[in-house]
Computed example of a mutant assay.
Amino acid sequence: MKRLTTTFMIAAFSLLCATVLLSNKSQAAELPYLMIMGEDNDQDAIPRDSRVFRRVLNELAEAMNADGFDVYDETAVSLDDYAQGRSRRSDAELIDVARSITRPPIDIVVLFEIYASAERLDYTTKVRTRLSGRLLDVHSGRRMGNFEVSSPRNFRAPVNCNRECILETVGDNARLLARDVADVLVQKLGDEVDYGYDDRDDYDDRDGYGNGSTKDMARRRGNDGCRGRVQDVFLNFQNFTEQEMLDIEDVILAKFSCYVDHRPAGSHGRTHEYVYKTRLHTAKLKRNLVRALEYLGMSGRVRYQGKEFNISKVNKRRSRYYNDGSKW
């Protein structure tokens, strides 16, 4: 009986270890943090303090939240540092606000505008509504897609419809249009996030830097085993020589998983800047950079904010004294 119990415990422990290792090898997509912001700088657009604006915003947020995306309220995350209740804001102000928020760091903003008009006729009131906007990566500035939906011609209101009636009719129409827009947004974001394959055997994180074999670079560039949207990450290396940067690039190409592309953005003395495209989680990218310095025998620090990494090498003082043997 005792031997049977011991055998069962060993089998259970082995199953647990296998489950943990399998979950570590499967890389889920890193979901972006979203924020919905209204563009109302155009005097013809409906301002953000309107009830119509709030109904559209709530409909967009609800649709994306129901589909599994993390949507954050602009007022809640910017309450401490920014003036609230401002209308007719420029694009520069919206992007600056979204880019400066770090708790949580906003990755993508949904910028939308609402246009509405009413034409009064003797027998009815024609109501026209149009909803347009775009998806924007706030850190890289990459436009991820545009959208525009207009109301059909059969949107009508009573012939004696007053201002209150017009607002409610426009709000109902805009809310219906927001549902169509939300479906388009969810599809575009889903295509970005869910891209890639789930080949669990392609990359084994247990290899490490010193003990494992280098994976085939062609397969690595195919992003097998990596899922999620391509992110533009900015790498700033400080106090590195040209030869040291060649060594670092070799490590990135041979060891970093989910690699897509990289290109130099600038080089000034011992300061080197790169634009790095990857599908890797930003947290693991930070760990990889720390491990790369350790693997190359370099002392340094890795700092991170937003989508920008600052890697600073700690240089040691070079000794120019020499021992020439037994000469006096």
Rank of each mutant, 00 (worst) to 15 (best):
R3E: 13
T5D: 05
A11T: 03
T19L: 11
V20T: 04
M37S: 09
N41Q: 14
F53S: 14
R54H: 09
V56I: 05
V56K: 01
L57P: 15
N58M: 01
N58I: 02
E59C: 04
E62K: 08
N65M: 12
A66N: 07
G68P: 04
V71R: 03
L79K: 11
Q84L: 02
L94H: 01
V97M: 08
R99T: 02
V109H: 00
V109E: 05
S117Y: 04
R128L: 05
R128Y: 04
H139G: 12
S140N: 03
R143P: 02
M144S: 04
F147R: 07
R156Y: 14
E164L: 11
D183I: 02
D183K: 09
V186N: 14
L189R: 00
Y195T: 15
G196P: 06
G210C: 08
G210A: 13
G212H: 04
K215P: 10
A218V: 08
D224A: 09
G228T: 07
R229M: 09
N236Y: 13
Q238A: 15
I252P: 08
H262I: 15
S267F: 10
L280Q: 10
T282Q: 13
L285T: 00
L285R: 00
R287Y: 10
S312Q: 10
V314D: 15
R320V: 12
Y321E: 11
S326H: 15
